[in-house]
Simulated assay, not measured.
Amino acid sequence: MNKTIIVIFLLMGLSTTYAQNWQTDFSKAKEIAIQEDKPIILVFQGSDWCIPCMKLNKEVWSTNTFKEYAKEHYVMLQADFPRKKKNTLSEEQQEANAKLFETYNKKGFFPLVVILDKEGKVLGETGYKKTTPVSYIDEINAFIK
């Protein structure tokens, strides 16, 4: 019994060690970016309906390679637009995401990855590509001067 509890706690610790620290508040993301001198990676996604968004999450965002790198080099900001009722965001979050959408995703692409400087100026954009996490990091970094 005690061994089981220890194993569970160890596994919980491992899963949180690599947890992606996604921000959902643009102001807070900018504050962190300024404080830590990092660019912001703004991701527009439809987490429960957009197949390329789900693939990007599985193939890049959720990998340990990307998570470890991002933790040290980026502020990750998520603007999610789920469609299923069970995944509905708070009204406040929906409004915040809509404002980001109006400003940074005028063409309505999903997924859209917008690379911003710490002040919120657009440095570049990309989307889903069938690639490795390292290649995706390289692509993001190509926009960052």
Rank of each mutant, 00 (worst) to 15 (best):
F81E: 02
M76F: 11
N87K: 04
T16R: 07
K118W: 09
F66E: 12
E95P: 00
N87T: 11
M76C: 13
S27Y: 06
G127N: 06
K121H: 12
A98R: 14
F110T: 09
L10I: 15
G124K: 10
K121L: 07
A33H: 01
P82N: 12
K106M: 07
S62G: 09
W49E: 09
W22Y: 11
P39V: 05
K84P: 02
N105G: 04
V7T: 13
I8M: 15
F66R: 07
M76G: 09
T131W: 01
I137Y: 02
Q20A: 14
E31G: 01
Q23Y: 07
K3M: 13
K67Y: 03
L89D: 09
N21V: 12
L100T: 11
S47D: 09
Q45S: 11
T17H: 07
E92W: 03
W49S: 03
G13A: 15
Y136E: 10
I5N: 04
Y104C: 09
S47A: 03
V60I: 15
I41E: 00
I144V: 15
Y128L: 05
A29H: 14
A33S: 06
F109Y: 11
N2S: 04
M76N: 14
W61Q: 00
I8T: 15
G46N: 06
D25P: 08
Y74G: 05
T16M: 14
D37A: 11
I140Y: 09
T88G: 03
Q35C: 01
L42P: 00
T126D: 03
T16W: 13
N57L: 01
K107W: 02
G13V: 08
F143W: 10
A96S: 14
N57E: 14
I41R: 10
L11E: 10
K99T: 04
M12F: 08
Y104M: 10
I34W: 02
K55F: 04
K28P: 03
A98D: 12
V114K: 02
P39R: 08
E95W: 00
P52K: 11
T17L: 08
E72T: 12
Y128N: 14
T65Q: 14
F66W: 02
L11P: 04
C53R: 13
K38H: 09
W49D: 04
P111W: 05
K28F: 11
D138Q: 13
L112M: 13
A70E: 00
T88P: 01
D80F: 02
G127H: 01
F101Q: 14
L123K: 03
S15C: 02
T103G: 05
E125S: 03
W22V: 05
E91R: 09
D138L: 04
L11D: 05
S15N: 04
Q20Y: 01
E91W: 00
A98I: 05
W22P: 03
T88A: 14
K118T: 01
V60H: 03
F66C: 10
L42E: 01
F110I: 06
C50F: 00
K67M: 03
V122R: 13
R83S: 11
D117E: 02
V75C: 04
E92A: 03
T24L: 06
I140R: 07
F81L: 02
